[in-house]
């Protein structure tokens, strides 16, 4: 075991974790599973952020109504993230633009980054977890 891992067991080292979301909400289980893992990760008191890229930006779309689908509408849960101290939600500008979305379309407050800024943000992470 490395020194860094030893420190972590003692509650010392805080790592930067980024959860990368690239899938739309209901067609596959990725988005929901990703969100649940993020909520669980909050218990470990690490520096957690979420990135929304490609179809992942659709997860944040306002006004989702799944009644007729018989599936749970989990979009309100993104609004609970703040209470879990997960406040860094990054959305890639180019992914929004090609889908005709603006920040007004989102159910939560986000930070919009262009692809170069997003790339830099990803590169500085200790751990990236993809959904």
């Amino acid at each position: 075991m490395s020194d860094q891992e030893m420190d972590m067991e003692e509650g010392g080292v805080v790592k930067q974790f980024m959860f990368v979301n690239r899938k739309a909400p209901y067609g596959t289980i990725y988005a929901l599973e990703g969100l649940e893992v993020v909520l669980i990760s909050a218990a470990f008191e690490q520096d957690v952020s979420m990135a929304f890229i490609d179809d992942g930006v659709y997860e944040l779309k306002k006004g989702q109504d799944t009644k007729a689908l018989g599936q749970k509408n989990f979009s309100p849960t993104y609004r609970a993230l703040e209470g879990y101290d997960i406040e860094k939600l990054y959305v890639e500008k180019e992914s929004m633009a090609v889908r005709g979305l603006t920040v007004e379309d989102f159910a939560v407050d986000v930070t919009v980054l262009d692809h170069a800024e997003m790339a830099a943000k990803m590169a500085e992470q200790d751990v990236l977890i993809s959904f």
């Binding site: 490609d54 692809h115 997003m118 790339a119 990803m122």
Partner: peptide, 15 residues
């Protein structure tokens, strides 16, 4: 899929 395209867009130089 667009995975390669997105990867090339979001990989910094030297990756």
């Amino acid at each position: 899929r667009n995975a390669l395209e997105s990867c090339l867009r979001l990989a910094i130089n030297g990756s």
